[in-house]
Every structure is written in structure tokens, then in C-alpha cells.
Design a protein around this nucleic acid. Structure first.
Lengths: 336, 336
DNA sequence: TTGTAAGCGTTATCAC
DNA sequence: GTGATAACGCTTACAA
């Protein structure tokens, strides 16, 4: 089937293509009747303007690209839903790409979106490898907003969570409940959010004059497997904490599972606190105490910052928005 | 920043744009040295071909669009990952859209993707409202593959799961474990997969000569809330089954939660079986028996069918692929 | 108010 | 082997 173009309409009505074009863009003078006639036959012929051609000439698309590292955990989907809500309202369509935890794929995704002439980009970085490329994009004028996993050198607006503060609170909560030998399952070491969560943990212990030994910070990761491995190792070394604060929920849940299988009671023998309120937290046994991030609001904020940047390309300064969270206290961390 | 185009390269090297263009498409005759020279300066000037222009003239994009109803549950993300794996291998980039459970948004998403000249579309329908529009697209020659939630009238290849069969097995499993008064929490009534799951349930009971009364089929839905509501209602009517087979995991888990809160022991008082093996199934208390769909394989199959269709637009017949699953038996359905 | 023509960045069809 | 030139579908000065 051949696509209907303005040419077809022009020919049919014996008009020039510019007149037809004008009928669809009401910023020009055109006689009312001509316009109506054109719109009518357009409908009749089932004409759809070709946005590719439009993009080529206008150099913009009203599409926004989103790049996330994965979307198996529900964190990123929830953020995306928030962003989409605002963007859709403002007439932007959202194109999502996920990198399946591959940093090459991340770059490839960004390229595809740029190739499709998105008007702006929302990225949660997986690491620092592609930063130089992103820097180029920014310098070339592409509006980008970063969130969650960012890089200090990138001069973009950012929406982040106060990982340090909430990590501090979460740890303090365990201390208040009477736990003394708390271990931290740390996230991937190359992410600044991992560092901040670790730092919050350390400082909370410091504040309460609890001395930490090196083994209390266990390198783990963000997947359930990472939590399991960490727990297995601790058990093998017979190095058993009386509470664990993990850098995210899946790690906490993985570790919890292993300890349970080895006969430890939770929270009696070991208490648990996670981070980021995954959908699982409420449903595991026992329910997991977790720091909740305002996912939807994060998404909305990102979208607002991006639109602001797109609409005022000249006078904007890359502000960093730090959002607040809350600690959902559940049975896994109840007092000794 | 101005974009570098083949014109710039041509000017710099005193060549014609056609020669430059040829250097990037090796199907034409061009002297080796000229080609190398061009490629070199292209790199030097940081030239990137403009895919929009390419699309305009070639009428294809090497992009594939995916449309899903939601991606909070991990079913769709897993399928997408499988599809992306194959598509990426074949040089296609994937653009994902999610409709946030809105059927208008579904249509809008499809439109955006079509506007971006995707070479093919992968859709899980939310209902029948947009079918007519999709039919038009198919007739106009756009390759589409449907999965999961389909429509019988759409003449596309389909990848589906044998909902009837596995529903039958799941129900039979409960019967074998000694449960007699089994209730079914049914999915959204407009989806054929809901119907098939219900039918499997009914026929399994029939086979074992267990009579069903109407109240044993409870209209619910696919969200956790739906399961909760259904459970509340049963409790209010004091109509307590000795086992529940839900049309999906979230519904099962929601109901389970309510019954537990009312003091029922699981599986002693009420056994549970879910459907679709959500990430939660393994972690709820007690672990939930669930039918597992081969999510990644579904994704891969979709991708293969789509590529096949794109590459042989003429001789393809819309086949329907029915994939197999397995029943993960866990504590929630152990013998009475 | 409408038409002509140039141009967005490519590829493709001719000549030479 | 290379260079003009038209074309993809649209917008937009400028001319009429």
C-alpha cells in the first residue's frame, strides 16, 4: 500500500503542496474554505503526515528517550511510569530502552535514540565508561537528565535520592532496636550510590560509638544472588552478625533466604533491613524493613526538569534535585 | 553544534556527495583509496550518518517496536529481554512502550512507533478496542506479531501459552493432593487467556467427577487488589474453599494475604496455586505453587517469527506457536 | 491568499 | 570510478 502524501491531496484538489501543508499548520494565512476542504479530503484519503520527513526538516521529534540498566526489578518501571505521566501530558511520547546490564548495550541504546532525534534523554548510568560520549552529546546541545546512578562530571540536571541520609537512618533504626553487630552488604563498588549508602552506615555506627571492623562491610551487589553468596560466605567463616543492612532489597532477601535455610530465626537471630522498597519487601517472610524511595515522584521530577531544559535551552542551570524517602519498618528488624 | 553531513566531507575532499555516499555503502564501485580517504576524514570530522534521512528514502529503520500493557510485573520485562536478545543479534534495535493499562495509550504508543517507521511491531493487546486499527496496519504491510493477549481476528503470527492445558494440570495437581472444594479466581473476562484458564479449571474438575457450583468461579482480575477483594468477599459470605487456583500470581498472593490475616493456615486450611511464576512466588510465605511460562523463550520465538516475516514479506503464513510450561510445586499446595 | 522553489541528509539513476 | 541530479515528504521564504 502506497502512503498518502500531501502531494496526493494537492493533485486531487488542484492546489499546490504548500497550500496543503499550510492547512495542517495553522500559523499561516489560508482561506477558511480551502483549509476545510483540504482537511476533509485528507480524512477521506486517510492521510497521515509523515513524521520522519517532519523530523528531518524540523530537527525535533516530540519523542523522549529513556535508558535504564534493567527493568526486572520494579524500581525503574515505576520511575518510568511517573516520567511518562508528565511527558505524555505535555505532548511527548516516550521511547524506552533497557540495557540488560550491558554497558555496551547502554551506549547502543543511547545512539539509537539520538538517531531517532529524540528531543531529550533520561538516563540512569551503569558506570563511567560512556561518560565521554554523553558529554559530547550534551555539548552538542541535547538535553539530558540523569537520575539514580549518576556521574559527577556530567553537567546535567540530576534527580537523586539522599542515599547517605537514609542509609544513616536505616542503620540507626537497627541500633535503636538494640542491635550492635550490624553488617552492611555493599552495592557495586563503582556506583556513587553504593558509596553513599556505605558511608551512611559507617557514620551511623560512629555516631553511636559502635566500632566497626573491616569484615562488617561485605562486598555484595544488587542482585539476589549477590546477597546469597555473601551470606554463604559469612556462614562458612562462621562470622555471624546480629543484624544486616543491605544496599538494596534483593540482596537483603537473598541473604535472608540463606540464613533461614541454615536455621537462623529472623529477626531473633539476625535482623534485616533493605533498601528501595521492592515489591517483594512486603511479601517475604518475615516482611522486610526497607527504605522507600518516591519512585513515581522521581519520575515526575525528571520529566519536569527535562521539559524545562528543552523549552529553555539557553537559560537553565543544571540543578540537582534531592528527594526524600521514608523507612518502612516491618517485622524483619523488630527489637531483639 | 551543526551536524556534519556527507556534504561537508564532499566539500573538504573536493568530491561529489554521491561518491562520499558510496564510500559508506559498499554495494557500489569505488576506488579503494578514495573510499579509505573518505572513511578517514569521516572519522576525523566525527561524522554520523543521519538515520532519519536514510529512513525517509529507504522507508525502513531497523527498529522494532514493542507494546505492552504494563511492566510492573516481571512477566513482560522478561519476554522483552528474550526478544531483544535475538533482535539485537540480527541488527535490530528495540523501542519499548508501555501503556500503563490504558487502551488509549496503547494506540498512541503504536502510532508513535509506526510514525518512527519501525520495521515491525510486537504487541500484547489489552483488549479488542484497537483491533480495527491494527488490522489496517497489517493490511498496509506492517509486520506484526502478537503474544500473550491476542485477538482471533487479527491475521498475525502469534506466540501463546497453552493456558487451558496448564490450568488443567494445575487444578489436577490440587485434586491429587486431596483438595475437593477448589475455587477459581478468574482473570479479566474480556481476555481469551482468562477464558482458557477458567476452562482448564472446569474441565479438570469434570474429569475427576467433582461437581462445581457457580460460586466456585470468582470474578477477580490480575492485580493483587483483585485477589484481596475476592478473598474479603468470600470471607464475608463465609464461603470458604479448601483450595484456590488463581488466574495469576498477584491475585493468588493478594487472596492468600487476606486469608492469612483472618487466621487461616496455608496450606492446611486453604491451599493455593497461582499462575505465571512471578518473582514473588518463591518468596511469599509459604512459597506459592505456580505455573511457569517460558518467558525468555516466548520473547525469542516472537523475535524469530517477526524477523522471518520482515525478511519474507510475501511467502509467510501467520502461524501460531504454542509454548510449553511447567508447574513449580511448592508448599502452598502440599497435601492436606 | 496562494504558488514557486529551495532545502533537510540521504540514496539511486543516470550519464560521462 | 565519479559526478550531476532527482527523489523521499515535508516546511518555509519569497514571489505573485
Amino acid at each position: 500500500m502506497k502512503h498518502i502524501t500531501i502531494k496526493d491531496i494537492a493533485k486531487k484538489l488542484n492546489l499546490s503542496i504548500s497550500t496543503v501543508s499550510r492547512a495542517f499548520n495553522d500559523k499561516y494565512d489560508i482561506r477558511k474554505e480551502t483549509k476545510e476542504l483540504i482537511l476533509e479530503t485528507a480524512k477521506e484519503l486517510n492521510y497521515h503526515p509523515n513524521p520522519i520527513a517532519k523530523k528531518l526538516i524540523q530537527q525535533r521529534s516530540f519523542n523522549i528517550g529513556i535508558v535504564v540498566p534493567e527493568f526486572i526489578n520494579d524500581f525503574f518501571p515505576k520511575v518510568i511510569i511517573g516520567a511518562q505521566e508528565i511527558l505524555f501530558e505535555k505532548g511527548y511520547q516516550v521511547l524506552i530502552t533497557q540495557a540488560n546490564q550491558s554497558i555496551q548495550m547502554e551506549k547502543s541504546n543511547v545512539k539509537t535514540l539520538v538517531d531517532n532525534m529524540v528531543d531529550g534523554l533520561i538516563i540512569s548510568l551503569m558506570g563511567d565508561d560512556n561518560v565521554e560520549y554523553y558529554q559530547e552529546l550534551i555539548e552538542s546541545g541535547l538535553p539530558i537528565v540523569c537520575f539514580n546512578r549518576t556521574n559527577e562530571n556530567l553537567k546535567t540536571p540530576k534527580v537523586i535520592f539522599d542515599d547517605y541520609k537514609w542509609s544513616f537512618f536505616a542503620t540507626e533504626h537497627l541500633i535503636h532496636e538494640g542491635y550492635k553487630r550490624i553488617y552492611h552488604l555493599a552495592g557495586p563498588s563503582n556506583l556513587s550510590l553504593s558509596k553513599n549508602r556505605k558511608l551512611g552506615f559507617i557514620d551511623a555506627n560512629k555516631k553511636h560509638k559502635i566500632e566497626l571492623t573491616e569484615n562488617q562491610i561485605v562486598p555484595a551487589g544488587f542482585m539476589m544472588e549477590d546477597g546469597k553468596n555473601a551470606a554463604e560466605e559469612l556462614i562458612a567463616k562462621n562470622d555471624i552478625p546480629d543484624a544486616i543492612f543491605a544496599a538494596n532489597d534483593p540482596a537483603a532477601i537473598g541473604a535472608m533466604k540463606v540464613f533461614k535455610e541454615h536455621g537462623y530465626k529472623i529477626p531473633e537471630d539476625i535482623a534485616f533491613v533493605g533498601f528501595s522498597e521492592s515489591g517483594l519487601a512486603l511479601h517475604v517472610d518475615p516482611p522486610l524493613t526497607s527504605v522507600e524511595q518516591p519512585t513515581t515522584e522521581i519520575g515526575r521530577s525528571i520529566a519536569r526538569l527535562l521539559i524545562q531544559q528543552i523549552e529553555n535551552p539557553n537559560d537553565f542551570k543544571p540543578q540537582t534535585l534531592i528527594l526524600n524517602g521514608k523507612l518502612n519498618i516491618r517485622q524483619s528488624s523488630k527489637a531483639k
